[in-house]
C-alpha cells in the first residue's frame, strides 16, 4: 500500500471545542500544507456521516471527550465495520494520564497525541502515522 504524503492525505478530525478546531485548521494549513481536512463538531450519526464522505479518510483524529459518542465508542463503530476495520485511528487527548493512554492502546487505537499539540513535531508525527507507525506521543 502506497503511503500518501501529508499534503495529499485526507484527515477527519472530530472535535467539539471550537478553539481546538481552529488550532487544528491552522496547523494543517500553515504548518503542514495539508489541504484535505474534514472536521465533525460532534459525533452524532458518526458512521453515517463517515460513510457519506467522498472517500475513506487516511487518518481519523478523534478527540476523546466528545458527545454523544466518545472517542472509544467511535473507534468501536469503525472497527466493527469491515470497510473501516483497518483505518488509522489516533486519539487526541488533553488528559495526559497514563491510565488513559493505556486504555487507548488497549482499545485498539493506532496512537495517541496529547494536547496542547507540539507545533514543531506535529507534522512529522502525522507523516509517521501515515507510514504505518504506531505513535504514543503524549505532550
Amino acid at each position: 500500500m502506497n503511503t500518501v504524503s501529508v499534503k495529499e492525505a485526507f484527515f477527519l478530525y472530530v472535535e467539539d471545542d471550537a478553539s481546538n478546531r481552529t488550532v487544528m485548521n491552522l496547523i494543517m494549513e500553515k504548518a503542514m500544507g495539508a489541504r484535505n481536512l474534514v472536521i465533525f463538531e460532534d459525533s452524532a450519526n458518526f458512521m453515517e456521516r463517515v460513510r457519506a464522505l467522498p472517500k475513506c479518510p487516511d487518518a481519523f483524529l478523534l478527540d476523546i471527550h466528545v458527545h454523544p459518542y466518545n472517542g472509544f465508542e467511535m473507534l468501536k463503530q469503525l472497527r466493527t465495520d469491515p470497510e473501516y476495520r483497518h483505518v488509522k485511528v489516533i486519539g487526541l487527548t488533553a488528559s495526559v494520564t497514563n491510565e488513559e493512554v493505556e486504555e487507548l492502546r488497549d482499545a485498539g487505537f493506532d496512537g495517541a497525541i496529547g494536547k496542547p499539540l507540539n507545533i514543531s513535531t506535529f507534522p512529522d508525527l502525522m507523516a509517521r502515522i501515515l507510514k504505518g507507525e504506531t505513535i504514543w506521543f503524549v505532550s
Binding site: D17, S19, N20, T22, V23, L26, I27, K30, A31, H65, A94, S95, T97, K115, P116, L117, I119
Partner: peptide, 26 residues
C-alpha cells in the same frame, strides 16, 4: 482529573494559538 481536563482544554487552545501567532504563522 475531570476538573483539570476542563481547565486544560481551553488552556491547550490558548497555548497553541498563542504559539502559532508568535511564530508568525498567521
Amino acid at each position: 482529573s475531570s476538573m483539570s481536563h476542563e481547565l486544560r482544554t481551553p488552556l491547550n487552545a490558548i497555548i497553541n494559538l498563542d504559539e502559532m501567532v508568535a511564530r508568525g504563522m498567521v
